[in-house]
Design a protein around this nucleic acid. Structure first.
Lengths: 194, 194
DNA sequence: TTAATTTCTTCACATTTGTGAAGTAGTTTA
DNA sequence: TAAACTACTTCACAAATGTGAAGAAATTAA
């Protein structure tokens, strides 16, 4: 199957201009991958191998707490990069698991190749700054929502901003991500359906 | 009074090595500022003027919601850089107010000088990546705490990790930051004092 | 210092959310 | 297909947190 670089370039272009030389580098180093549903592509305990761009599909990031409970820290419905940046940048073992919830089409680059492309291209550092800053804003907003919105309001906001997540991702993951007990989320959904 | 660059360099060195040339640049472009308590040094609606490093003192970041309620999104008990990175990097008007809660000793660099120093020095882009990634981790952890910890546990965690904040910052700001109603926080404190 | 203002606490009561068990529905496996 | 498993819902009850008013305490201004 043909690798879908257009979606990648469209996504990057939202943040920064990519000169042709950097597009060439992307085409050379990013490799397509087709992952079947319910696969963990980066397990906890290991240094992340790839920087993953999701062309299509639904992914989440989760870790196990001290009681063995899965805590979902991020859910994606992008085109979007999806990686534990801390462990990816610093090459430290991750505490998180990157989980393809549905079949996913990815474009990904090996961690070591990222250091090579940083020397070849001109825009990578600037792009890294842009994407980290974007991720920072997303997480700041998530924290603000968790301090200011009720459980019901958080669910409604997710439904409004990412309606397909609710249709494609098991509710227990969504409940964990929103900080709501699954039973409570069920009740909230019932109340809303009236 | 003498500007305290040692605290700044110690802080930066935690993340990255600073070659002498970049230390020179810092000494030239960072200016000391002594701000009296209860001053807003970067008001909302304006493009942030400075990148602020807090040598000593307590600061917070807040915005006004649609009901005119102050929402505190960050509290600092530095030494630490303290800025709305989104608006600082992109030179867009901030929706947040940087508020010196106590008297503060700052070292700060003008926004336009940052573009100059980026060309002179070699480490600035790498440092920016490090600090954004660090801020990202802090905000990810804050969101996880808000989804997994009770109000009481969040207060106890803040008390453990930043005990001086509780002694130096009005409780209403702390309550907003932790996502707890001030009255509820009062009750939690009473229950804990037994 | 006194007065005015702001912050914090306390209380009774309301509301929201959590909990665990039980049952239903849906999905996967053999 | 049937059996096994997993996800989701529902319920009654428990626990946590929010609300608004009132007063106490602390801080600031005159």
């Amino acid at each position: 199957m043909e690798a879908n670089f257009e979606i990648l370039f469209d996504y990057i272009s939202l943040l920064i201009d990519i000169p042709p030389i950097d597009q060439e580098i992307c085409r050379k180093y990013f490799k397509p991958a087709f992952v079947t549903k319910d696969t963990i592509i980066e397990p906890s305990g290991k240094v992340p191998e790839y920087h993953n761009f999701i062309v299509s599909g639904y992914m989440r990031n989760f870790y196990l707490d001290e009681n063995g409970q899965e805590i979902t820290t991020d859910i994606n419905d992008g085109p979007r990069f999806f990686t534990s940046y801390d462990h990816f940048i610093n090459k430290t073992p991750s505490n998180e698991n990157l989980h393809c919830i549905t079949d996913c089409e990815l474009l990904r680059i090996k961690r070591n190749d990222v250091d090579i492309t940083a020397k070849l291209g001109v825009t990578q550092r600037d792009y890294t700054i842009q994407i980290l800053q974007q991720q920072l804003e997303i997480n700041k907003q998530r924290a603000v929502d968790l301090t200011t919105l009720s459980a019901e309001q958080r669910y409604l906001k997710l439904q409004k901003n990412h309606p397909t997540i609710i249709q494609n991702v098991p509710l227990k993951y969504i409940a964990s991500y929103l900080g709501i007990n699954p039973g409570s989320l069920s009740r909230i959904r019932k109340d809303l359906s009236r």
